[in-house]
Design a protein around this nucleic acid. Sequence first.
DNA 1: CGTGTGACTCGGT
DNA 2: GACCGAGCCACAC
Length: 105
Amino acid sequence: MKEPTEFEQKVYDVTTRISPGRVATYGQIAQALGQPGAARAVGNALNKNPFAPRVPCHRVVKSTGELGGFASGCTKKEDLLKREGVEIKNGRVVDFERKLTGRLL
DNA sequence: CGTGTGACTCGGT
DNA sequence: GACCGAGCCACAC
């Protein structure tokens, strides 16, 4: 077992900062890290997600409002998301832009 | 050190 | 709204 790199650790940190009932996009997180365009790297970090329940990866969605690939292994998070206040319709977030985390800080 | 891969994003058609 | 291609970054091998 190895410790995640600083970049990944930062991703987890920002992800945990997402308030309940609010969602963020990979690009938004990437920008919060100071590396806009690293949306892919962010996805990679969350994919490893060594902090599984600790990091609410289900709160991270695509820029289009779609849940994202995480649904493949976290499909049940849909219900959890709804429970937090984020309504999911057809695998997409309702009022996604409105619920988007304006500022991850 | 070079290559391949991936939970992405954007612009054009 | 859907499909295609290109660009971007970090990690594993």
